[in-house]
Design a protein around this nucleic acid. Structure first.
Length: 323
DNA sequence: CACAAGGAGCCCC
DNA sequence: GGGGCTCCTTGTG
């Protein structure tokens, strides 16, 4: 069913725009940023971060065409967020008005600091996707199944038109070797975007490799993962864990699931179909839908993991052991 | 119509 | 056996 017109693709494109020129060396205390020039990343690839976290960045970083909307994975910018989105640290972010905690108190932030922050966020998001999809971070290591998962995921996350089996037979090494033109050839509608996103992943993998492997210091994101993620143990992820992971990444998934009261563990599924599809992707269950997902959630009632809150509302659930 | 609740059968690890 | 998927019925707003 091709889903009702979920305002496709055009909001994601700024393929020619780049930020991160990396002319200066990064600050020496940057946690995991390699020395030397940072990879030049297309701006469109940061859209997952831009919506809440760094809209302030763009404001200062003009000249941005005023008519061009800020790239966003959300389908239609027509509807503003009804509720303030809470970021991973629980700090309410009023779009365009507040600085990330790391930069609070600093009126002027240097380009390097911005780079460090943005790149760090990109790495965290890639890490999230890896864990949710259970695929290696380095695209070169992907099997054809991994490639397929990644394509589906990226399509889904950025509401791209579906490419079908255009990349089906390719393994990671092969898809990494494709030029943008070849991407377009295989998928005229979204090939360029997929190519740009793959570039991000390749750059991130490259950066990770260049990071000192002995550095065991966890980034914020990794700490969150350590708290939330038990999929690293090699065991199959449970639904409640998956939901919690989505909830802990509000800048990526805040539109489909969000906390109503994190202290009490109360959350709301904003887009039931979307969450179900994400779960289906994660579990390789293409037929997953909210009906089945909610049935699984209801199994948790008996087990004391999730319940309906005292005041029952549609699509609102509560973890019995809040995060 | 979408969601909620729960029974039941099935599969996989 | 546990966890989850699937299909089902019934009820509600």
């Amino acid at each position: 069913m091709g889903g009702p017109d979920e305002g496709v693709a055009e909001s994601v494109q700024h393929p020619s725009l780049t930020i991160l020129e990396g002319e200066d060396k990064p600050p020496h205390d940057a946690p995991c940023i390699p020395e030397g020039p940072l990879p030049v990343l297309p701006l469109c690839c940061f859209d997952m971060l831009l919506t809440e976290d760094v809209t302030w960045l763009l404001k200062g970083a003009e000249p941005h065409t005023p008519s061009a909307p800020v790239p966003s994975p959300s389908p239609a910018p027509e509807e503003p967020e009804q509720c303030p989105v809470i970021d991973s640290q629980g700090v309410p972010l009023a779009p365009g008005s507040s600085l990330p905690p790391a930069l609070q108190g600093q009126e002027e932030c240097s380009l390097e600091q911005v780079q460090t922050l943005v790149v760090g966020e990109v790495l965290k998001d890639i890490e999230t996707a890896c864990k949710l999809l259970n695929i290696p971070a380095d695209p070169l290591e992907w099997s054809s199944g991994n490639v397929q998962k990644w394509v589906l995921w990226t399509e889904h996350l950025y509401r791209l038109p579906q490419v079908g089996g255009s990349f089906q037979e390719l393994r990671g090494r092969e898809i990494c070797g494709l030029t943008e033109a070849e991407f377009r050839q295989r998928s005229p509608q979204s090939g360029d975007i997929l190519h740009a996103h793959l570039d991000i992943w390749k750059s991130a993998a490259c950066m990770k490799e260049r990071c000192s492997p002995g550095d065991s210091k966890l980034t914020e994101g990794e700490e969150l993962w350590a708290e939330a993620d038990s999929s690293c143990s090699g065991q199959p992820i449970h639904l409640w864990q998956f939901l919690r992971e989505l909830l802990l990444k509000p800048h990526s998934y805040g539109r489909c699931i969000r906390w109503l009261n994190q202290e009490k563990g109360i959350f709301k599924i904003e887009d039931s179909a979307h969450v179900a599809r994400l779960w289906g992707l994660r579990k390789n269950r293409p037929a997953m839908n909210y009906d089945k997902l909610s049935r699984s959630i209801r199994q948790y009632y008996r087990k004391g993991i999730i319940r309906k809150p005292a005041v029952s509302q549609r699509l609102v659930y509560q973890f019995l052991h809040p995060v």
